[in-house]
């Protein structure tokens, strides 16, 4: 597992039913592309997050496949519809098999 991976997510606390809200996510990860070389000229092996998903109460919002061309500390911004009170689940899948998860509650007024 890569060290120092910390997901950060920005979701509003409340919304009205059916409202479109903007979600911003950032996860600290070095996203080693597999193209760089160290000081001895050896290739540094690829180590990236290859998939990111966001679900709301089990229903999918967005599913992103990431490639080495995504910058360090992958950032995503997208919009989601909130039909009812519930929880957003965010999941990141690392090349080495680790899974980073976080969730945010939102209440509909």
């Amino acid at each position: 597992m890569a060290k120092g991976v910390r997901p950060r997510v920005k979701v509003p606390k409340t919304a009205s039913a059916g409202e479109a809200i903007t979600i911003k996510t950032l996860i600290s990860h070095k996203m080693e592309s597999g193209q760089r070389k160290d000081s001895d000229g050896n290739k540094i092996p690829r180590s990236i997050i290859n998939r990111f998903t966001c679900d709301f109460n089990g229903e999918n919002v967005i599913d992103v496949t990431l490639e080495p061309a995504i910058s360090t500390n992958p950032f995503f911004e997208f919009e989601a519809t909130v039909p009812e009170t519930g929880e957003f689940q965010f999941t990141w899948y690392d090349d080495d098999g680790s899974v980073y998860e976080t969730s945010k509650k939102i209440s509909v007024e």
Binding site: V61, I62, L66, F78, T81
Partner: peptide, 12 residues
Amino acid sequence: VATFKFGPLAAS
């Protein structure tokens, strides 16, 4: 670079 798949709850 990336592939974005939008689910049923994607607002836009």
